[in-house]
Every structure is written in C-alpha cells, then in structure tokens.
Amino acid sequence: MKVVVDLKLCEGNQRCMEAAPEVFDVRDDDKAHLLMQNPPESLREKVKLAVRMCPRQAITIEG
C-alpha cells in the first residue's frame, strides 16, 4: 500500500495524525509528513480512516 498526501490541499488539520499516528506526522510547517511511504497491510484500516477523516480530502491510497 502506497500513501500519497497532496500538499497543496493539506492544511495541517491533524486528523490523519489522530487516525494513524504511525504513518502521519503534522509538523510546525502545518503539513502532514509521511513517517513511512509504504505502510504495512496491518495499518490499512487506520490509513483508510485517515483518508476518510481528512477534511481537505488530501490523502490517497495507491494499491
């Protein structure tokens, strides 16, 4: 599973970090940074929740 964040859309709302802290980290630049590009399958549900909760719909899962 590959995760992509559209940084033009991201406004640092931190919902992804709440849903999947293993994968997302919102830093002082108010942007979501990926802690891993290809999270393991075991995190799929959490990443899916992050996708759903992102107010700007800036996250996509590829594969």
Partner: peptide, 14 residues
C-alpha cells in the same frame, strides 16, 4: 466517537 460529520463541508471548500 467517531463523529465524521460534514457540518464544515469537506474537500476543496472545507
């Protein structure tokens, strides 16, 4: 909880 409401909209115009 969870509470995925869309009272603030969602996406481009959130």
């Amino acid at each position: 909880n969870p509470n995925p409401h869309v009272a603030f909209g969602i996406g481009e115009h959130f």
